[in-house]
């Protein structure tokens, strides 16, 4: 951890790098043919498994586990899609027009159109373009993910002060990292924070898309994914 800290110049950022989860693969069922519904089923199954990892990751954010169980639930229920979207966005940065849901599930415009996710695809490309222009690095990515969770604006928070404390700690970590690693642009931290409205907008759109798919009953969704989609109403 100390070696990583020397590199990032901030202990929280180094810790977030260390607790970053391993890659998850989509692992589409090889025994069935590739229909639109199969692609959506694979995507929903991937999201369900990512959610399990995300909940476990959240517990490793410094201070998160000291919040009340109700507040932990409130933050996760509000911000889970923003955290998942940030992951897709970061993985997609090296690709021109593909969304890297997983290394084995890269979706391009035409496929997104045929499964009914073109609108979401376009919004995601806009968000990816913003981060590509900034050349978002991994340290900033892990810090922004934690900030998205802490800044979820949940309506069901019991201890607002504790959440504010968590936000302040993450904000300071980002500022310190930028001061140490991106001296060339004193506005970089602000620029990163200014991407958060589009992230929320994109996450809301994604939730709407998957709620529509859920209502259509076209694909089987696992219980945790359903539970989190329903919590976002």
């Amino acid at each position: 951890c100390c070696q990583v800290s020397k590199k990032t110049g901030n202990q929280i950022v180094s810790h977030l790098l260390l607790v970053e989860p391993d890659k998850i693969f989509a692992m589409a069922d090889p025994t069935t043919s590739d229909t639109d519904d199969k692609v959506l089923t694979t995507l929903c199954d991937l999201a369900d498994r990512e959610l399990v990892v995300l909940i476990s990751w959240a517990k490793h954010i410094p201070g998160f586990s000291t919040l009340s169980l109700g507040d932990q639930m409130g933050l996760l229920q509000s911000a889970w899609m923003e955290v998942l979207i940030l992951g897709v966005v970061f993985r997609s940065l090296p690709y021109d027009e593909g969304l890297v849901y997983a290394d084995d599930l890269i979706m391009e415009r035409e496929q997104c159109r045929t499964v009914g996710l073109l609108d979401l695809y376009c919004t995601l490309l806009q968000l990816i373009a913003k981060y590509r222009k900034l050349q978002l690095d991994k340290e900033e990515f892990v810090t922004l993910k934690a900030m998205a969770l802490a800044n979820s604006d949940s309506m069901n928070i019991e201890n607002i002060e504790a959440i504010q404390n968590l936000q302040d700690i993450l904000h300071e970590a980002l500022q310190e990292y930028e001061k140490n690693r991106h001296l060339e642009d004193p506005h970089r931290g602000g620029k990163l924070l200014m991407t958060l409205p589009l992230l929320r907008q994109t996450a809301n759109k994604a939730v709407q898309c998957f709620r529509r798919i859920m209502a259509e009953g076209r694909v089987t969704m696992h219980k945790l994914f359903l539970e989190m989609l329903e919590a976002k109403v």
């Binding site: 109700g70 404390n165 945790l224 919590a231």
Partner: peptide
């Protein structure tokens, strides 16, 4: 909490929380 029982259960699973 009953409505969100999987999230509730996963959060209660033992891990190593990190203090501030």
């Amino acid at each position: 909490k009953e409505k969100h029982k999987i999230l509730h259960r996963l959060l209660q699973d033992s891990t190593s929380p990190v203090d501030l």
